[in-house]
Nucleic acid binder design. Structure first.
Length: 526
DNA sequence: AAGCTCAGCAACCGCGGACTA
DNA sequence: TTAGTCCGCGGTTGCTGAGCT
């Protein structure tokens, strides 16, 4: 169609003499060999020209398109148009639940590697995925929800620890490569000294408390929005498909511990905002040689409620709840969480356990909870303080003896003891039923954000009570409690908008305490 | 009905890696 | 080895339509 470079201003497209000019890039210019290149939306005629060209010459050599066809489009634009709209086998329409699930997993695994993610989603383009994700981010930010299902964050911890054994994490590879090496993000040096703590509780009766603390309180937690903490597997991602994994399944074990673990710190972190499990830039920093996991993570982490959104909005995976000074020091903001949570405990601590107060935001909470819980049930501490292995925990006998809800917060079955892979494996449909099916299969109660919680005096919390410990996210199959929060959850549902179901009916499902989490690797992901 | 807001999407832009001469 | 070119990727922008006031 012999496109004149001067006859393309119809259809609302940019005029050929648009001020948008060549930026010097061979692709991006508005002129090419004297031909003024067009910008803006493509017309059907242009599409036809491009399709015809590709049929004849195949993909690639995009700069030649203009030369061969006269199409007043730069090669870059042609490639984009072809890749995103014209190439065959493109899948149009909304993402399916399965696709959404995959995207979430892949993003947790890869970060913003849209093209690579697209490779896992036949018929989908990187642009589509990127747009989807960005939309999702916005939506979840507005809702004050985590970018990832809480499980993704929490359960990554063991994976992180596993990575520590890999030299690659220090070898200067790109963070994403490192992360991909085992299927998950994880700036995990912080866990270096914690490897042995995974099942050797820093606090008697609190297996994994330290790592859990890191998971939450360190920049590596990249957490979650607190309101979703503790709802792992229960709290429905408002804009995500319900899955076996997320629904947790009534009898699905791994969720429970996370639920309580999260719950322990949930409310204390509710104002912290979004955090993300993976941040390339920060990961690199964290991987730097001068990074001190002991100090940087545990002391300099800040939990700025005033910053999290800006961070999240700006960066790919904002994730970090700390701010970086010009000197590369992570400075706590004035509203550091330390101001909210006073170190509740005194007395000697395990040498390998960061002391409350100094590190320890999460630890503080744990300690406090521990102290309170301990007073109620000493056996809990004894039972869980045993140096149990992953498999041993499966026995659950000890855990079962621990009736205090506190135990759940620090249960070795907690997310910190759950692998990312297990999470993903649970995400991965194994039953064949749709994600939506799961919504109906489980009576669930959504986690909701209760702003008042964070304002509560810590002393008001009765840690001996599960509902106190868990706050709004305490699992409730049915009953008055679930109704209590109905209005809030409904409002959340309304906020989320994209769900057909009320938040009240989504997100939460009770989980067995003592079931053992399956452990598998993220490599399960296609 | 008009105006406003916002989510979703398409496209642009700049950067950087790969390749080649 | 270096410079030039091609191409892909990721971030960002701007348009459009739907929903709300």
């Amino acid at each position: 169609m012999g496109h004149s470079s001067t006859a393309e201003s119809e259809d609302g497209v940019l005029s050929v003499d648009s001020p948008l000019s060549n930026d010097g890039d061979n692709f991006g210019g508005s002129s090419n060999g004297g031909v003024v290149l067009k910008k803006g939306p493509w017309t059907a005629a242009e599409d036809a020209i491009l399709v015809e060209y590709v049929k004849k010459h195949g993909e690639g050599n995009w700069n030649a398109v203009q030369k061969h066809t006269g199409l007043a489009r730069c090669g870059k634009s042609c490639r984009l148009r072809w890749a995103n709209h014209l190439r065959p086998n493109l899948k149009k329409g909304a993402f399916t639940s399965e696709e959404e699930r995959i995207i979430i997993e892949l993003h947790a695994k890869m970060g913003n590697k849209w093209a690579r993610m697209a490779a896992h989603l036949p018929g989908r383009t990187d642009n589509e995925i990127k747009n989807y994700w960005n939309t999702r981010i916005k939506r979840r930010q507005r809702a004050g929800l985590s970018l990832y299902p809480p499980d993704l964050c929490l359960q990554s911890l063991p994976e992180n620890q596993q990575q520590l054994s890999s030299p690659r994490i220090y070898d200067g590879d790109k963070a994403c490569d490192i992360l991909q090496s085992n299927g998950y993000w994880a700036p995990n040096i912080m866990f270096d000294s914690l490897n042995s703590l995974r099942y050797a509780p820093a606090v008697p009766g609190i297996p994994g408390s330290v790592s859990m603390g890191n998971g939450f309180a360190s920049p590596h937690s990249y957490g979650f929005v607190p309101q979703t903490i503790g709802v792992s597997g229960q709290a429905r991602e408002p804009d995500e498909p319900m899955s076996d994994y997320e629904s947790g399944g009534i009898n699905e074990a791994p969720m429970f511990s996370r639920t309580r673990t999260d719950s322990c710190v949930n409310k204390s972190f509710q104002s912290f905002g979004l955090c993300y499990p993976y941040d390339t830039d920060h990961t690199k920093k964290l991987l730097s040689s001068d990074f001190n996991p002991d100090t940087d993570f545990m002391s300099d982490v800040t939990y700025s409620a005033s910053e999290h959104f800006s961070n999240a909005q700006k960066s790919e995976l904002p994730s970090l709840q700390y701010q970086e000074t010009g000197l590369g020091v992570w400075d706590p903001p004035p509203e550091s969480f330390d101001s909210l949570v006073q170190s509740p405990l005194s007395g000697p601590l395990p040498s390998h356990c960061p002391s409350p107060g100094s590190s320890g935001l999460l630890e503080d909470l744990i300690y406090e909870a521990m102290a309170l819980g301990k007073s109620e049930n000493q056996s809990s501490a004894r039972a869980t303080s045993s140096n149990v292995s992953h498999g041993e925990v499966a026995d659950g006998s000890a855990l079962r003896t621990c009736s205090t809800e506190f135990k759940g917060c620090i249960d070795s079955n907690s997310p910190s003891g759950n692998s990312m892979g297990s999470l993903f494996s649970r995400y991965t449909p194994t039953t064949g039923r749709s994600l939506e099916d799961d919504v109906t299969m489980h009576h669930v109660k959504s986690e909701v954000f209760d702003p008042s919680w964070i304002l509560d005096d810590e002393s008001k919390v009765d840690y001996s009570r599960p509902d106190a410990m868990l706050g709004s996210c305490w699992v409730e199959q049915s009953g008055p409690a679930s109704k209590q929060r109905g209005s809030t959850t409904d409002s959340i549902a309304a906020l989320l908008g994209d769900t057909s179901a009320s938040a009240s009916t989504r997100g939460f499902t009770s989980c067995s305490w003592n079931n053992m989490p399956p452990v598998c690797q993220i490599s399960d992901i296609p």
